[in-house]
């Protein structure tokens, strides 16, 4: 099985090398992400954690040095990933009732969860960037009502735009976690759920 870092690189490289957006759309016009891609990335993560959990339980002496030395698979990827470069990206908060002119919109896939942030693969829906990107997003930026939807495999939209209220205009970032996912993605989430149960049993 590929390490998670390799999987990330492969996913990112596949996108970078994977021709134009129009070719991509032709290849998979309906559902993002495809079952195999989501499954490949997320199942690898879950399996790695499961293996890590098993290693910890079989080596209690080493556990004394954790958790700082037992890095989650996603930690390696943080060093190699391509990060969305937008100033103040995660500073703004959603204020209800505003109208937003979209400057840029991404569809995000939650790839892994860490203690203070989650890592997401982002696909630009407004065509400013044609390759996928990865970003770490602090949990604090997510509306509490959306937290329960923040699981591996969840799909969300991240929108940057000009919000107008009472004649003034300011730049805002919005996050919206989809309540319902395309069928293929739901199947993946079931697999993840099963893996979590396995992991809980192992723990």
């Amino acid at each position: 099985m590929l390490s998670t870092a390799s999987t990330y690189r492969e996913l990112a490289n596949a996108r970078i090398q994977g021709s134009s957006i129009s070719n991509w759309n032709r290849a998979r016009p309906d559902v993002f992400p495809s079952d195999s891609e989501v499954l490949g990335t997320i199942v690898n993560n879950a399996a790695s954690r499961l293996a890590s959990s098993e290693r910890q339980s079989s080596n209690p002496a080493k556990n004394a040095d954790t958790p700082s030395q037992v890095r989650s698979p996603s930690d390696n990827d943080v060093e190699t990933k391509k990060v969305v470069e937008i100033p103040n990206l995660f500073r703004a908060r959603k204020i209800s009732g505003q109208w937003v002119n979209t400057l840029q919109e991404w569809e995000g896939l939650v790839v892994s969860l860490s203690s203070e942030y989650f890592t997401a693969r982002l696909r630009d829906l407004t065509l400013l960037n044609q390759s996928d990107e990865f970003a770490e997003i602090p949990y604090a930026e997510i509306d509490p009502s959306d937290r329960e939807r923040l699981v591996e495999g969840a799909i969300f939209h991240m929108i940057i735009g000009y919000a107008r209220r009472s004649g003034s205009q300011r730049r805002e970032t919005f996050f919206y976690f989809r309540r319902y996912l395309p069928g293929g993605t739901r199947r993946v989430q079931k697999v993840i759920s099963l893996l979590r149960e396995l992991q809980d049993d192992a723990d």
Binding site: Q98, R178, R179
Partner: peptide, 18 residues
């Protein structure tokens, strides 16, 4: 709707008719 996120519309349709 004229307000983002537009994708929310699909969730509403699913809630009502799904």
């Amino acid at each position: 709707t004229a307000a983002e996120p537009f994708v929310k519309g699909a969730d509403v349709v699913m809630e009502i008719f799904g």
